[in-house]
Design a protein around this nucleic acid. Structure first.
Length: 557
RNA sequence: UGGGGGUUGGUCUAAUGGUAGGACGACUGACUCUGAAUCAGUUAGUAGGGGUUCGAAUCCCUUACCCCCAGCCA
């Protein structure tokens, strides 16, 4: 940030002050995921704040895996986390760290604290520790083991490290204040005994540091100037500072901000895990999931996610961002980047009775009106076409600009056609619409200048491709599924129509070469992305998001 | 009834004692070979009550409501 740029939020403001008053002379931040799950849109906010803020100040940012609990963490997640962060467009270069890299240093520092009389080995059981901790309104009381000698503590701690004691039998605790109003300061546990295999350190350790003991020191070791985190850690800041001060090491500044919540979405790791394990969705990258891998598969461009995070802003106010803002950001990018294509989702046969049988014409269509460099393509036109079933009405309502008996419309990039007749089957279902075309209107322009109100899309019946189309919608039908009345859970509010399979669609032939990851606008319908399940013989599209539809809104009134 | 945070239109967020502004949404209208996009406009807010001040979203007092903390999770 230059001298005159205004800080865009309270964190940048605080950092700017730190720089101006000399507390720090450069900026280093970090994103510290625990490798025990997939990243979701809430993490994206944290990443954008952590990394984006460093970029604003021309600083550096580290990726550090917070792997202090071996029984919960796996290498698999390390890889997916890295992939997702790269997808967002961040490059942490060679600054990839692991809290487990610091286990030796952390151990030495623990010894130092013991020597200073600031830590002790406690033999209390987990239950006893809880009892001794007191409650929110009552102070705790000191453990009977709190005043052991430094020598005894040193000896016991070393034996803990050497594996002489079973899991849960003893812990190392910071000696602070059992009567503190802040429960985090009531002699918090620093180390626990866990005879567990760690994904990086293997079986070297059988004691592992707790988050509170590891995090601040890891920040300090890396020279992180600003440790930006969730509001939940606000109450931990005194402890964060306490360890750093007792150790006399580089003092990182922790600043907390409100985590992201998104309407019609759930972001709790536990709930997401439940959705996957109970098969309410098809895995972590199901396109309905708020995970970055899910959004990527759904077809959300990474720029849209970034733009959304920018627009949501940074504050300490706990809030629920509106999913319609995210959808706006997705459409905004896709509108500029996605090539247009004609696909009939719910086909109805249209026969042009005065068009020569067997004739095919190649009509020129614009690929992207927002981007001239995208060029044009040729689309085959013939006597029998498919149009969208909802684009024909036997008895058109007011302001219906599409096809109806006697009404003329434009077939996009084709001809003007006028409906002359239609065919119904014994159930009363319309099976075919007949019309005549005006040969003078080739390409969609009329030489006499007459106007048509409607333009509809179409696909030539003989040339049409078929595909599997997966229509996705929001996963929940209430704004805050994580917060529901007594006796209900978020599972009661899953949208039963969040996924709908369509095997009937007719696609224009240019789509034959579509590859996984390609994104298109199906004109007048929505944005669709080619799924990773797609093959040349069996195309699969995911509906990313529909187009805005004011006609639908008019009808709902 | 402990400690720590928070409260600005429907939603998110600015305004740092001096005109309460923006974005999304919603609603109008214009334009349009996508009922999309675009453009123009409308709607709507400082949690309540007191005080300080020429002037308060901002400072003070007070009330209410919301969130976090009692893992050997992070």
């Amino acid at each position: 940030m230059s001298e005159n740029t205004a800080p865009s939020n309270f964190i940048e403001e605080a950092i700017k002050e730190d720089l101006e008053n000399g507390r720090f002379d450069s900026v280093v931040t970090r994103f510290p995921p625990e490798p025990n799950g997939y990243l979701h849109i809430g993490h994206a906010k944290a990443i954008c704040i952590d990394f984006g803020t460093a970029e604003v100040f021309n600083g550096k940012y580290n990726l550090r895996f917070d792997d202090t609990n071996p029984v919960k963490e796996e290498t698999e997640f390390v890889d997916s986390i890295k992939e997702d962060i790269r997808w967002l467009g961040f490059d942490w270069e060679d600054r990839e760290y692991y809290a487990s890299d610091y286990f030796d240093q952390l151990y030495q520092w623990a010894v130092q604290l013991i020597q200073q009389g600031d830590a002790y080995v406690d033999d209390l059981s987990p239950d006893e520790i809880r009892e001794y901790r007191g409650s929110l309104t009552e102070p705790g009381k000191n453990s009977p083991y709190r005043d052991r000698s430094v020598e005894e503590n040193l000896d016991l701690f070393e034996k803990m490290k050497n594996g002489d004691f079973p899991d849960g039998s003893r812990v190392l605790r910071a000696k602070i204040d059992m009567s503190s109003g802040n429960i985090n300061m009531r002699d918090p546990v620093m180390y626990r005994i866990m005879h567990a295999h760690h994904h990086r350190t293997g079986d070297k350790w059988c004691i592992y540091p707790m988050y509170d003991y590891a995090h601040g020191q890891s920040d300090s070791l890396e020279g992180v100037t600003h440790s930006l985190c969730d509001l939940a850690y606000e109450a931990h800041r005194p402890l964060y500072d306490w360890f750093i001060e007792k150790l006399g090491i580089f003092h990182t500044r922790q600043i907390e901000f409100a985590r992201l919540k998104l309407s019609y979405t759930i972001l709790s790791k536990r709930f997401l895990k439940q959705l996957v394990h109970e098969k309410h969705v098809n895995g972590w990258d199901d396109p309905r999931m708020p995970t970055l891998s899910g959004m990527r598969r759904r077809g959300y461009p990474h720029q849209a996610v970034r733009d959304f995070i920018d627009r949501v802003g940074v504050a300490k106010n706990e809030s629920i961002a509106d999913i319609s803002l995210l959808e706006f950001c997705v459409r905004d990018i896709l509108n500029k980047e996605a090539n247009r294509v004609m696909v009939v989702l719910d086909p109805l046969k249209l026969v042009i009775t005065n068009y020569p049988e067997g004739k095919t014409e190649e009509m020129e269509a614009v690929n992207n009106p927002e981007d001239e460099s995208a060029g044009t393509r040729l689309v085959p036109f013939s006597r029998e076409l498919y149009i969208e079933r909802e684009d024909f009405e036997e008895n058109p309502p007011r302001k219906f600009f599409r096809l109806a008996p006697g009404q003329e419309v434009r077939l996009r990039y084709g001809y003007y056609v006028k409906c002359t007749d239609f065919v119904k089957d014994e159930n009363g279902t319309i099976t075919e619409v007949h019309c005549t075309y005006d040969p003078e209107t080739r390409g969609g322009y009329s030489p006499d200048g007459r106007k048509v109100k409607g333009t509809i899309h179409w696909v030539s019946a003989d040339h049409a491709l078929t595909a599997e189309i997966r229509n996705y919608d929001r996963l929940f039908n209430v704004p805050d599924p994580g917060n529901v009345p007594e006796g209900e859970t978020f599972l009661h509010h899953i949208n039963p129509n969040s996924y709908e399979l369509n095997l009937n669609a007719k696609l224009e032939p240019s789509l034959r070469t579509a590859k996984p990851g390609d994104r298109f606008q199906f004109e007048r319908k929505g944005y669709f992305a080619v799924d990773s399940d797609s093959t040349p013989d069996h195309l699969v599209f995911n509906r990313t998001v529909t187009l805005r539809d004011t006609w639908e809104k008019m009808q709902n009134k």
